[in-house]
Structure formats: C-alpha cells, structure tokens
Design a protein around this nucleic acid. Structure first.
Lengths: 207, 207
DNA sequence: ATTTTGACCATTATATTTAAAAAGTCAAAA
DNA sequence: TTTTGACTTTTTAAATATAATGGTCAAAAT
C-alpha cells in the first residue's frame, strides 16, 4: 500500500462507522473529520468529494463480501447448505450496515446518485454471479436438474430481496427496523430457499 | 337493497373511479360530489366521513375479488393452473386500481389510517385463505406432498408481494409505474410459482 | 514537496410563516 | 326523508427566512 494509503483507509473506516450508524445523509464530512481528529479540508485532500468517499466505503464492503462468498463457493457442500451460508452473510451484513444500505437510495443533491445507483447495481450483479456459479455447480454435480441458470439466479435473488422488503415494510412502518426483523427475514429466506431449491431437484411439470 | 342503497352504490362507484385514477389523497369529497352532480353535503348524509367512504369502496373491491377467486377454486384443474389464474386476477386488479392500492399506505391526517390498515390486513388474510384452500386441495388430491399449509401459504404470498415490490422499486423509481411493469411482475410471478410449486411436489431434502 | 488547516463561499436542507384547499357541520329548503 | 349553500376548522401546500453542509483556497506546518 502507498504511504498515504493507510490514511485513506483510516478515513474510510471512520466514514463507514458513521454511515452505518446514522446513514449517509445524516453524516457530515466535518463529523468524519472530527472522529479522526483532522480538519475537514484534510479530507478533501484525499477525496475530491463526498460521493467519492461513499463509493470507496462501499467498494470496501463489496470486496469484503465477495471474499466471504468465494470462500464458501470453494468448499464442498450441498447447494442448499451453500445458499443458507450466503443468507447468513447477508443477514450479518444488513444487521451491521442497514442504514448505509437504505440511505444509498435516498435522493440527496449533495451526492451523485447516478454513480451510487450504478455501484449498487454492480454489487447486485456480483451477488447474482455468485448464485449463478452456485446453481451451475449443483447442475454439474447432478444434484439439480438442468434449467436456465441465468433466469433462475435472478429469480432467486429477486425472491430474497422481496422477502426482505415485505418484512421491513410490514413489521416496522418506516423508521429504523428492530434487530428482530433481520432474524425474521433470515428465517423466511431459509424456508423459501428450501422449497425453491427442492423445485430445482426435479424436472418441471408444466401444468 | 334498501331504497337509498342504490344511491350509496352510485357514490361508491364514483369514488372508486377517482381513487383509482388519482389516488385517495388527491381525490376530494367535492370532486366526487361534482362527478355525480350532487352537493358535498349530500355525500355526508350517506357517509359520516371520508374514511368510511374509502372503506366501503375497498370492501366492494374485496367482495368482487373474492367472488372471482372462489369461482376458480370450485373448478377442477391443477394447482399451478389455479395459481396462475389467481395471478391473472391480481394483475388485472393492480393495473386498474394501483393508485388506490398504494395511496392506502400514505399517511393522511384526513383519514383514519388504523382502520384502513386493518382493512388491508383483512384483505391479505382473505387472499392467503384462498391460497391455503388451494394448497390443501393439492395435498388431498395427492398432486402435492404433505407440508405445513399455513406456513407455505404465507410464504408463497410473501414471495408474490415481494416480487411486485422489487419490480416496482427497480423499474420506476417512485412516481406512477408504467403498464409494462404489471406484465413484468406477472411473468416473474409465474416463473416463481412454477418452481416453488415443483418444490411442493416432492418431499424436501433437508441438506 | 507533501500534508494540513482555518477562514471563507455557494449551495442545500430545515424551520417558520403564510396562504390556499380540503374535510366536516348545520340550519334551512326541497 | 333527502338535499343544499354557506360556514368553520383542520390540513396541506407554497413562500420565506434561517441554519447547516459541501466544497474551495491561500497560507502554514511538516
């Protein structure tokens, strides 16, 4: 790492803490600077603007998540077991970084929303790629029947996302959700995964 | 029907049109009155307040929907075929009454939101009951294996709702969604239903 | 040469006030 | 019994003022 790379990392970590606790929009550049006892102007020596800092923070998280996913992918276990481990990683992630995640969608004229949305799309694509590989593996080992892996990966991801959205919208109407919601989401996703995957073990009957 | 029942029905129909086109909050009692050429005060002779009118309108829709569902339920066809017909009814409904449906969730101090939310919960319960009967029928005819029908019905409903939420949130970021979204939701729900139901045709393997 | 900073500006968000609109009432008319 | 115009009260929306935040820069510190 470059000499000033260590400092950039320091800033990113401080920003991450704030973003995860209070959300992106409720975190000011001054606050991040105060946390690590430097001036706000100094932050702008390392990052051209707030949007770039946010992006760096998220890239950091994506890299971390991808590593965790790949570790599981390279192990030898059933597809369902793999999926459930993925779900656990996701659960832990959202428990920690839920506010960072949702505030990513809040329009904020201080931020370049196009770039942020593009990054979120990128993260989703990466996750779906992991699912794609997982299902592919299941087909190759004859654990699953043959099917259109691309469509099914996207479908499965949509179901996971949908379960989370439904749970959050019904349990806690706006405001910050309680911790129990994430457990509930996790449990529901496991049930859905079990049935969904069972449907991929046998050839589809069309009517 | 009572003598003034016909007039109440007339008001309800006029209100339904406005609610579905412009949403509940953007529809005023005066506008509904104008549409049927009566005074606003006359509306209040038949309905004590706006909330009650909204509730009557929705109850009207629920009754209509339940009738359509029950007609299908009493026919003889495969479970998947039944589910797909249900989905078609839902698609047509949301295409027509989408704004009415979402504005039901918007906080509006003119309305008693507790009552409205209770009614929406009631409608969901009724829908899940239909799904419950459908799956039960599938088990009884040995088309499906045995499972906890209550959990599975709720799970399936959550998946349908989740797919809709995900599609609407990604395609059209706020504002009114285009008609194509409802087709997309319908197609995705059919795919998910096919796989999900296939998973209920065979005993679950736990790992 | 590189890093850091306080003072500064322009833009954006928030709080407050003001005006318009809508819900709901009622005595009187049909 | 049903209908209504005129009225009151509450709520929303628009306008305005105020505070906060993102971002800049010349100068100081390392």
């Amino acid at each position: 790492m470059e000499p000033n790379g260590i400092k950039k990392q320091h800033i990113i970590e401080a920003a991450l803490k704030r973003f995860s606790h209070f959300g992106i929009n409720k975190t000011t550049m001054s606050e991040i600077a105060e946390d690590i006892a430097v001036s706000k102007a100094n932050l702008y020596y390392y990052f051209p603007d707030k949007t770039t800092l946010v992006i760096e923070v998220i890239k950091h998280l994506i890299a971390e998540g991808m590593q965790a996913y790949n570790e599981i992918l390279n192990q030898s276990m059933s597809v369902l077991e793999m999926l459930i481990r993925f779900l656990k990683i996701r659960k832990d992630f959202f428990e920690k970084h839920y506010l960072l995640h949702i505030t990513l969608g809040f329009a904020d004229s201080h931020l370049n929303m196009e770039e942020l949305e593009a990054l979120r799309d990128y993260a989703e694509t990466k996750e779906i790629e992991i699912l794609h590989k997982t299902f592919k593996k299941g087909i190759d080992t004859l654990e699953l029947v043959t099917f259109d892996v691309k469509i099914v990966s996207q479908m499965y991801f949509t179901i996971l996302k949908g379960i989370a959205m439904v749970s959050i919208s019904t349990i806690s109407n706006k405001d910050i959700p309680e911790i129990s919601v994430f457990n509930e989401i996790f449990e529901k996703q496991k049930i859905a995964s079990t049935i969904f995957l069972n449907g991929l073990r046998h050839n589809l009957i069309k009517n």
